[in-house]
Design a protein around this nucleic acid. Structure first.
Lengths: 220, 220
DNA sequence: CGACCTTTTGAATGCTCTCAAAAGGTGTGG
DNA sequence: CCACACCTTTTGAGAGCATTCAAAAGGTCG
């Protein structure tokens, strides 16, 4: 009903949380492949990603891995009130983080309603992102899933020219619920069909098209 | 892990929000199959489910439907700050709702930090639930997906004796990313294998087993 | 009892997975 | 600078599983 109020809210939420982290956080640098937080480990800090790409990975008892989401600069980790990490948080490439102890974070939340609003906004966005992935996963064919994944990834980074893919094929496979080989085949198919251009395996460019992204690209 | 701390947290969140709805909400009764809120429609109210089963359905431009979650008594709708419903909310069976206008809800949130904490808790739970579904969907075989779905459904309603399945096979199929026929076949397979007992198509009972639920049953 | 809807079952097609091997890329040491 | 080893990615072939189309069976309500 009120897009104005909402965008104001979003802007406020961003600045509120960013400002809070700017004041109370300690900055740290994480090497590629390093685990920031283990699954089931007590959540001692909340994080803000300054640079790099983080993957949230859930490991099943059978040893399978499901990547729930890829997070980038400006995204947050551990904003919820769960006492433990429900998934592992791992650095895909070199990551720079701002960390705030949960005790400090919780204390601030008890007094600052604005900060709470920002947390609410970000959690709601996370719900939307998961919903978008659920819809993406429901897309039947492997090629469609990979195409949608690439379109959303590109839209996050400004889709002009070649875009970096920090994560490997295995990561994409575990994110989309496909095998690594099927993901690779999907890349080849998209390339052969002219939908994408590849430079090596880690850079791609989308062919120019009308904005048909399935309708949830913005939510992701 | 520490169920004590977590349940304490949940209890606080529950009572805060429930009390707020008890004071400010108007109660309404919804007939089976009725749409409570349309996708993309402005979100004018937040809801608390008193009785019945609600499905959150996302409709794609191609006309496909993905059921993001089934909600039951005690669950909430529209706790996020999004100005529009990102998915349709539909009554599966006869549903009793408590509704609070968004304006009233937002105004209360600005002053009441406890209420904000309860909202945060419920949003975090929703994120967990979506993650659980993502993991469930990643389970390869159809029979496994249906078995996990039934186990989680039963665990929500106290798993003694026969449990009601308010939703039809089509709904389950659109929830798990399978075809209706495959879901039906999975039911038949589970029944033949002795994993479940069926009474009609809407009542089932799980065979007694050790608690092997894949590890996310509680989060859903 | 009959109409209508849901659920179940059947058969063939198609897509993805698994197993396997080749190709491409990167970094280290000679 | 080249060669080698190691890892990631790509490509190939066959098997398995879910889907589609189709029809029968079961349930419900008038």
């Amino acid at each position: 009903m009120n897009a104005v109020q909402d965008s104001r809210c979003a802007a406020r939420g961003e600045s509120e949380l960013a400002a809070f982290f700017g004041i109370h956080a300690t900055t740290m640098k994480i090497e590629p492949g390093t685990t920031i937080a283990h699954q089931c480990e007590p959540a001692r800090s909340a994080y803000r990603i300054v640079r790099g790409c983080v993957r949230s990975a859930y490991y099943t008892q059978e040893g399978d891995r499901k990547i729930l989401q890829f997070l980038g600069a400006g995204d947050y980790l551990g904003l919820g009130d769960a006492p433990h990490w429900s998934a592992a948080q791992e650095a895909v490439d070199t990551v720079v983080l701002e960390a705030v102890p949960r005790t400090v974070f919780e204390a601030a939340l008890r007094h600052d309603c604005m900060l709470q609003g920002a947390v609410r906004h970000n959690l709601a966005r996370e719900v939307e992102a998961h919903a978008a992935l659920l819809v993406l996963t429901a897309q039947t064919t492997a090629v469609d899933r990979v195409r949608l994944f690439l379109e959303r990834h590109a839209s996050r980074r400004g889709n002009s020219g070649f875009v970096v893919l920090p994560m490997g094929r295995r990561d994409i496979a575990d994110h989309l619920g496909l095998s690594m080989e099927t993901v690779s085949r999907a890349f080849s198919t998209l390339k052969a069909h002219g939908d994408i251009a590849l430079r090596g395996a880690s850079f791609f460019r989308l062919a120019q098209r009308d904005g048909d992204d399935g309708g949830l690209a913005n939510a992701a």
